[in-house]
Amino acid sequence: MNSVEKEALFFKIFENNKDKIYRLCLGYLKNANEVQDLFQEVMINIWKGLEGFRVESKVSTWVYRIAVNTSLLYLKKTNRRNSMTEFMEMEMIVDENSADSEIKNKADQLRLCIASLRKQERLIMTLLLEGMSYEEISEITGITINYVGVKINRIKKELERKLKLAYE
């Protein structure tokens, strides 16, 4: 792959996946500034990994694996933990077309609830909300499909409970 092909492939991946990756970062972290840092780090890792990218692999799975693994290692660089207060202060970024106050409010609540889950659960829930199948989640995380199902059922119940409390 020459540099022009690499750049073209990267731009294509960027355009097709930027929102998904951004939401994954949003679901994983709580601080807006760190979301931006993590997003850019994921992009750098995608750029670095392009040389080893195999065309036969599914792009979205490959991208998500990099995004998830970069998120898991992100603490190494920041070396700090966020508080819920920081999350609450975070600015909401919602698509202008759908940014009515109700959706904005619901998205806020949803993010707050996801952020209160355990890290591994946050990642799985974020992948599920992106419409990924159990099989794809299993491929990304490396856990068995059966366990993905068990895990998701557990997380759904937990999230439902948290959302009920949040909407009350």
């Binding site: 959706i103 998205a107 949803l110 993010r111 909300l129 992106e130 759904k156």
Partner: peptide, 17 residues
């Protein structure tokens, strides 16, 4: 309401105007 949650979740974009 997973579909609904997906819609809400996916309404969040990386960039906005």
């Amino acid at each position: 309401n997973l579909k609904q949650l997906e819609e809400i979740w996916q309404s969040q974009k990386a960039v906005s105007g």
